[in-house]
Amino acid sequence: MKRLSLIFATAALMLFAMGCDKIDINNTHKPFEPVAGQKAVLIKDFTGARCVNCPAAAETAHELQHLLGEDRIFILSVHAGFLAQPIGNFPDFLTEEGTIWYNNHDSNPLFSVDHVDLTEGYTLNVEQIDAPVAAALNEVQLFDITTTTTYDEASRRLNVENNFYPTGDGDGKYYATVCLVEDSIVGWQTIPGGVDREYVFRNVFRGTLNGADGQLVSNGPYYMEDVFTTTSSIEIDSTYNADHCYVLTYIYNYESGKIMHTVMEKIK
């Protein structure tokens, strides 16, 4: 009897000793090093000011950006869906293009990473985001982009010129979308347990300069020495803070929807 109890106590102690791994709280993040190219990745964060889980999800996306570098990860907060509807004092960040991209999904937060799998449920849950981001960062960069902005304070007119440089020879139909982004907007946001009336909205998508689908860059074979140029223009809304506005440009394969590269520039 005593032997049995001893065996049981030993097994329990062994389980106790081996059954716990304590992670050093100052070292919870794994080192991550993308292996190929300098391709940047675009996370579209479909969010809403009345979505209680969205701030934590946005935090996760920014955490990834913080870990992997602000020149490699771009976040576009697209307010779309039922929980983005402006009610009472909640801000109105809805856009026509954002609603098209959201494509009648019925929940927030949702993410897309470089438009992964556009044809079927291209959005991902926050818990699933890290692996696609890591995979996208390791892809070969097909195009480089330079963005030049000219902004006239008086008329609030913004002109954008994008140049696209293939990194090698290829073929395909490529479009580019130019987005206006406003950062650090303070407003009401639902959070667990209530409403944060001074929530800081990051990277808010304010619309595109060239439509939800963007405009054609290249159609057919292209060569490394080619340069493709697109121009677009917009008058910045008087309620937007131009000091906090950016232009975000991404080029994507028109057939698959997959984004090939993303850049972001301040407008002034």
Partner: peptide, 23 residues
Amino acid sequence: SFVSKKQYDMSIFYYIPENVGAA
């Protein structure tokens, strides 16, 4: 009671404890 789970750390970004105990 003591219960422990042995899970597999598949995360790319976080160190996930592979043995989590609860007593």
